[in-house]
Amino acid sequence: MVISRKQESPKCDIFINEVKLKQIEKFKYLGTIISNDGKINREISVRTAQAKINFQKMKTTLTNKHISIETRKRAFQCYIEPVLMYGCEAWTISNQIQNKPEATEMWFLRRVLRIPWTTKKTNERVLNQANKRRALVRTIRKRQATFLGHVMRRGKLEHLVKKIMDGLATWLGPGKVSDILAAVKDRDLWRDMIANAYKQGTS
């Protein structure tokens, strides 16, 4: 595989014992889709599809009106969200990509509440009915921030989180990237910053 920003991936011929290796556009590594464009669109699509399959398997429980909405939300968080967000610590969330997990979050919530699209309820009304705020993207940001702190404290692999920094710099509040890099050295301060950003509900 050749990872490139170019619209057409460059060709690369590699031979082992005179046998040419096949050049591919994507492959799965440790459960995550790696694409030759370096983007996470395919991975998010796969995660979403797998989470929806798991949801269908638990549909009887997750949509049961005899079970309190709080219990159903907890079940969703325990059994569906981990499938949806597997490996999200390494995702690069742009504004365009952010819309995808947000739309997926509402897709699940409408089904948990058994709200058909024909009712034409806005997302805000659905969230109010569930007594819930949007949380999926905030949870992804929280996990990325925790991962960043872990990596920076070890002093290695900083290059893996450079792209994440832009999104986290805005999410964690006003300040320079240098301020964030200094904060991760203090575990307690870093946890407080993550908790405060998560509580504020920004994405």
Rank of each mutant, 00 (worst) to 15 (best):
residue 89 E to G: 08
residue 89 E to F: 00
residue 89 E to H: 07
residue 89 E to D: 07
residue 89 E to K: 00
residue 89 E to R: 07
residue 90 A to D: 03
residue 90 A to P: 11
residue 91 W to P: 04
residue 91 W to Q: 06
residue 91 W to H: 03
residue 92 T to R: 07
residue 92 T to I: 15
residue 93 I to R: 02
residue 93 I to V: 15
residue 94 S to A: 08
residue 94 S to E: 01
residue 94 S to C: 08
residue 95 N to Q: 07
residue 95 N to M: 09
residue 95 N to A: 14
residue 95 N to W: 00
residue 95 N to L: 12
residue 95 N to D: 12
residue 96 Q to M: 14
residue 96 Q to N: 14
residue 96 Q to P: 07
residue 97 I to D: 11
residue 98 Q to I: 10
residue 99 N to L: 15
residue 101 P to I: 07
residue 102 E to C: 07
residue 102 E to F: 01
residue 102 E to R: 08
residue 102 E to L: 00
residue 102 E to A: 09
residue 102 E to D: 13
residue 103 A to C: 10
residue 104 T to Y: 04
residue 104 T to E: 09
residue 104 T to H: 00
residue 104 T to Q: 00
residue 104 T to M: 03
residue 105 E to G: 02
residue 105 E to W: 04
residue 105 E to A: 00
residue 105 E to V: 08
residue 106 M to G: 05
residue 106 M to Y: 07
residue 106 M to F: 04
residue 107 W to N: 03
residue 107 W to G: 06
residue 107 W to A: 05
residue 107 W to D: 10
residue 107 W to Y: 01
residue 107 W to H: 06
residue 108 F to T: 09
residue 108 F to S: 02
residue 108 F to R: 04
residue 109 L to Y: 00
residue 109 L to N: 02
residue 109 L to I: 05
residue 110 R to E: 12
residue 111 R to K: 00
residue 111 R to P: 12
residue 111 R to D: 11
residue 111 R to N: 11
residue 111 R to M: 01
residue 112 V to P: 02
residue 113 L to Y: 01
residue 114 R to Q: 13
residue 114 R to Y: 07
residue 114 R to K: 06
residue 115 I to L: 10
residue 115 I to E: 10
residue 115 I to F: 03
residue 115 I to R: 00
residue 115 I to K: 04
residue 115 I to A: 09
residue 116 P to Y: 02
residue 116 P to C: 10
residue 117 W to A: 13
residue 118 T to M: 03
residue 118 T to W: 02
residue 118 T to N: 11
residue 119 T to F: 11
residue 119 T to Y: 10
residue 120 K to P: 11
residue 120 K to T: 14
residue 120 K to A: 14
residue 121 K to Y: 10
residue 121 K to P: 14
residue 121 K to I: 13
residue 122 T to D: 09
residue 122 T to S: 15
residue 122 T to G: 13
residue 122 T to F: 05
residue 123 N to F: 11
residue 123 N to I: 11
residue 123 N to P: 14
residue 124 E to D: 14
residue 125 R to F: 01
residue 126 V to I: 15
residue 126 V to H: 01
residue 127 L to Q: 00
residue 127 L to V: 13
residue 127 L to Y: 02
residue 127 L to M: 11
residue 128 N to K: 13
